[in-house]
Amino acid sequence: MISDQLATAPWLMWFSIAGVTLFLIMAFNALAAVYVERKVSAFVQDRVGPMGQGAGLHAGKWGLLQTVADAVKLLTKEDIIPRAADRKLFIMAPFVIFIGAFISIAALPFSSIIQVIDVNIGIFYILATSSLGVIGLILAGWSSENKWSLYGAMRSAAQIVSYEIPAALSIIVVIMITSTLNLQGIVEAQGGIVWGFLPNWIVFNNPFAFLAFFTYFIAGVAETNRTPFDIPEAESELVGGFHTEYSGMRWAFFFLSEYANMFVVCGIASVTFLGGWQSPIPGFMNSPFWGLFWFMSKVLFLMFIMIWFRWTFPRLRVDQLMSVAWKYLLPISLINIFGVGLWILLVGA
């Protein structure tokens, strides 16, 4: 899609280039997000966070090299596999989680021309692949042969399966309005102006869609296991949850996929509700490369909000978590679908 030459190249080469690029994006995303997480948490908590001080290579200016140092540390750390662990599954688990996040990013439209693979059922594909990670979590928890990990795995399985439902039902609202499953199609349908001055993003399309955005985002935060829904790895209860026994690079893969999952969830939220690569002022700076800028700004903004959540809220208890999903989010999303249906009938999409 980027150029004709690439399109005619053998498919293997095309996929390897895309794969390496995606991996780099994910790695860079994690590096940047970890740095932002550290800094934001520091500012929230009245600290300064990582800072380079004095001569020599400390953590660089403003601690910019901190995450690099972290990565080097993780790479060189001893890889411990507990004797009682189920070796094969234990080794496999981090990669399963990682693959789940990895193949989801492939279908995200970074801009009108930058997208690895344009699937005609893109949204369906992403919903399916992004929930693949839960298998990895269960594998990790089970194979560690540790009670804390088992608890973490049990909790995360229950949690992710529950929150898939409100998330998917909220996405259905989008599909009803745009009547397409193609992600590019969904973004293209969000051009123009609505209500006289607002961009025609689905979040502004009608009150039910507005509600659906928040339902989706809350469910999304829960799916990425972040505070206030971080009970699978609740450090004050379960030590480390499903990744208690992991160390070094294997642990880093969990970390990497957590941030990749955040990216995917925020990516879907911005594509489906916030107009993806569409400019906030319709027609203004709307070229494909500005599109990349808009898309990334939206994603990063949502990621920032997730980080903000994490450093502000306490954690829910496991039964409260379930009741949020089944007693509040699920009915709300069902009402949303009904409401949007009525809206389309009476007002039109």
Binding site: S41, V44, Q45, D46, R47, T227, P228, D230, A234, S236, W311, T312, F313, P314, R315
Partner: peptide, 12 residues
């Protein structure tokens, strides 16, 4: 606060 998952009040 830390026990119920709120990290920030602890530092304050």
């Amino acid at each position: 606060g830390l026990d119920v998952g709120a990290t920030t009040p602890f530092l304050y």
